[in-house]
Simulated scan of single mutants.
Amino acid sequence: MAADKTDGKEHVHNRIAVLRAERGVSRRELATALGVHYQTIGYLERGEYSPSLHLALRIAGFFEVPVEVVFSLAPFPRLGSTS
């Protein structure tokens, strides 16, 4: 899998916003459950911040999915994509 790089930095793609929406969880609720500031969730969702391994595992645990469902080095396929 090729890493997506912008300005020489690897970009970590995520599905946090999608998972939150599916479960009806606000940024504040997720942040409180994880013990982080709610703005951190926004930074993560926009790809402005890559989580530590510890935080990534806690996020996956919160949603009860494997970490690969939440995070990827390659862009996720668009919803409804047949390819």
Results as ranks from 00 to 15, higher is better:
2 A>D: 06
3 A>W: 04
3 A>L: 09
4 D>P: 02
4 D>K: 12
7 D>P: 06
9 K>G: 02
9 K>H: 10
10 E>A: 08
10 E>S: 10
10 E>M: 07
11 H>E: 02
12 V>G: 00
13 H>D: 00
14 N>Y: 13
15 R>T: 03
18 V>S: 06
21 A>P: 01
23 R>N: 12
23 R>T: 04
23 R>C: 04
24 G>C: 14
24 G>Y: 14
24 G>S: 07
27 R>W: 01
27 R>F: 02
28 R>S: 08
29 E>F: 01
30 L>Q: 03
31 A>V: 01
31 A>Y: 00
32 T>I: 14
32 T>S: 15
34 L>S: 03
35 G>K: 05
36 V>N: 10
37 H>G: 07
38 Y>E: 14
38 Y>C: 05
39 Q>C: 02
39 Q>F: 02
39 Q>D: 05
40 T>K: 13
40 T>W: 08
42 G>P: 01
43 Y>K: 13
43 Y>H: 12
43 Y>L: 13
44 L>A: 07
44 L>T: 05
44 L>W: 07
46 R>P: 00
47 G>L: 07
48 E>I: 10
49 Y>V: 13
51 P>D: 09
51 P>Y: 03
53 L>F: 07
53 L>N: 10
54 H>Q: 11
57 L>S: 14
58 R>V: 03
59 I>W: 04
60 A>C: 12
63 F>N: 08
64 E>F: 00
65 V>C: 07
67 V>R: 07
68 E>G: 12
69 V>Y: 12
71 F>C: 03
71 F>M: 09
71 F>H: 05
72 S>H: 08
78 R>A: 14
80 G>R: 06
80 G>S: 03
81 S>V: 00
82 T>P: 01
